[in-house]
Design a protein around this nucleic acid. Sequence first.
DNA 1: TTGTCATGCTACAAAAAATGTAGCAACCTG
DNA 2: CAGGTTGCTACATTTTTTGTAGCATGACAA
Lengths: 88, 88
Amino acid sequence: MALLDLLGRRWQLRVIWELSRKPLNFRDLRAACSDISPTILNTRLTELREADIVTLTDDGYTLTTEGKNLLAEFMGLHDWAERWAKRR
Amino acid sequence: MALLDLLGRRWQLRVIWELSRKPLNFRDLRAACSDISPTILNTRLTELREADIVTLTDDGYTLTTEGKNLLAEFMGLHDWAERWAKRR
DNA sequence: TTGTCATGCTACAAAAAATGTAGCAACCTG
DNA sequence: CAGGTTGCTACATTTTTTGTAGCATGACAA
């Protein structure tokens, strides 16, 4: 499952999640991700850009159409997580 | 997002995925996950058991009801991944 | 009761990945 | 040209993962 190779890395889901609200520039995205180290943020962004999930625009890092499709699926997981968190 | 703390770790999604077909014992699960090291498999299983997503039964490691709910959401991601893989 | 096998799991040194801090290079803007 | 913003790199330290060996327990057979 190639998806898991891509998403099963630390911070990868989080980066997508943080970009779901609005585009963010490198520094703001870094801050949004609990001040992840710039080294690894750049690594993740490179992976996501190669996968055509994220792109860098004048507004900052942005989800592509693909990325938005992925996010839509991911929201299902998010809803599950909300219910899960409440039960604990 | 607590979900990301749980799932945003290497192998975590993969372990759930491998258990989606059928329960597997420790050694078979390990083999299914490309021979992941037993150290880290045990760490992941402990996390998933504490989160009540996976449980150990006579048949082996099994998704709980929660785990199956999670998997249902996860399938959406999987479908996306299939389309994504085809396009590349 | 003793040997064999399956299974869950631990130990631990080596390798790989992530962190945290500093700062460079390119680009604006005044 | 001076000062600020931004994307990103360098690199030593720390954390995580790997890979191999093997222990402990329990079921079953001889």
